[in-house]
Simulated assay, not measured.
Amino acid sequence: MNNDKVVGKPAYSVPNLERGLLIIELLATKTRGLTLAEIIESLSLSKSSAFRIVSTLIYKNYLQKNETTKKITLSRKMLSLGISSMNEQSIVEVSIDVMRALRDELKESVMLGVILGSTGTILEQVSSSFPVKLFVEPGTQFSLHSSVGGKSILANLPKEESSAILKNMSFTKFTKNTIVSKVAFKEQLKEVKEMGYAVDNGEDIQGIHCLGAPVFNEHGYPVAALWITAPHGRLRHEEFYVKGEIIVKYALEISTKLGYLG
């Protein structure tokens, strides 16, 4: 007799817990959030059940609601849980000194970000030493196709994972330089993989350039991205290679702290 058990639905389940997890997973794919009605429609939930579950998750600070737009989004608490699960030691704690050193060398704002679901999320930033700088709150989400954070990580993910993400990506045009073709984007990911760093040529915000590189864990998996951001006048095209290589060096330093052997 074969005593192996097929892993499937547990004998004892908690329906409302399952529904709550479905809501969290759905919102992880929606950068701008959803209204309660949109959640109900997407998951085919009853209005009373969805209201109780969402209200509880908001009360426990896992979700947040914009009272003006009525949109419900994941909270910073969910972000912090995601960060802590990535490594026994918080990746931010490991990275912060390196980020400050990179800022001191290049003088520009330094960001650390990850992919959560189908969007990117900024974990931490170190502000530029220049009077004019771009400031972004930790927890801010960013689109993958127009950012060096998204490009750096996607270019180094296992093919199955990157393909699954690309399949559901929408290539929104933010500026005249935004890549809006999946074919062109895939070609750029190949270039990122070869160069070791990614470029945002004013693709997310007009006039803002970014350079970034992936951060790997002990298994060689791209868990995050490190990048600088600056006005195009301070981060010119002719400087991309030299500064890109510098960022690769600092990203490797964080990777080494996480156990990456190269």
Results as ranks from 00 to 15, higher is better:
Val180Phe: 01
Gly202Glu: 07
Ile208Cys: 09
Glu203Gly: 01
Glu218Val: 03
Lys176Met: 04
Asn168Leu: 10
Phe174Arg: 14
Lys167Ala: 13
Val192Ala: 07
Asp204Phe: 09
Lys190Met: 06
Asp204Gln: 11
Lys193Leu: 12
His209Glu: 02
Ile179Tyr: 00
Asn217Ile: 07
Thr178Arg: 00
Gly196Lys: 10
Gly207Lys: 09
Lys167Asn: 14
Cys210Asp: 04
Gln188Glu: 15
Val199Phe: 10
Glu194Val: 12
Lys173Ile: 02
Thr175Phe: 04
Gln188Arg: 15
Ile179Thr: 07
Val183Leu: 10
Val180Asn: 04
Phe171Lys: 08
Phe174Tyr: 15
Asp200Arg: 03
Phe171Thr: 06
Ile208Pro: 08
Met195Ser: 14
Val192Met: 07
Glu191Met: 08
Gly212His: 03
Gln188Asp: 15
Thr172Val: 14
Tyr197Gly: 08
Lys176Asp: 09
His209Lys: 13
Gly207Pro: 11
Lys173Cys: 06
Ala198Trp: 05
Lys182Phe: 02
Thr175Tyr: 04
Leu211Asp: 04
Glu194Gly: 01
Lys190Tyr: 01
Thr178Ile: 01
Val192Leu: 09
Asn168Trp: 00
Gly196Met: 09
Ser170Cys: 02
Lys190Val: 10
Lys186Thr: 05
Glu194Lys: 15
Glu191Gly: 00
Phe216Met: 13
Lys193His: 15
His209Ser: 06
Leu211Asn: 05
Lys182Ser: 12
Asn168Val: 12
Gly196Cys: 08
Val180Ala: 06
Phe174Pro: 04
Gly196Ala: 07
Ala213Phe: 10
Val215Ile: 15
His209Thr: 08
Gly207Gln: 10
Gly196Gln: 09
Phe216Lys: 13
Tyr197Arg: 11
Glu194Ala: 14
Lys193Asp: 06
Thr178Glu: 01
Val192Trp: 04
Asn168Arg: 13
Lys190Thr: 11
Ala213Lys: 12
Leu189Ala: 03
Lys193Ala: 14
Phe171Tyr: 14
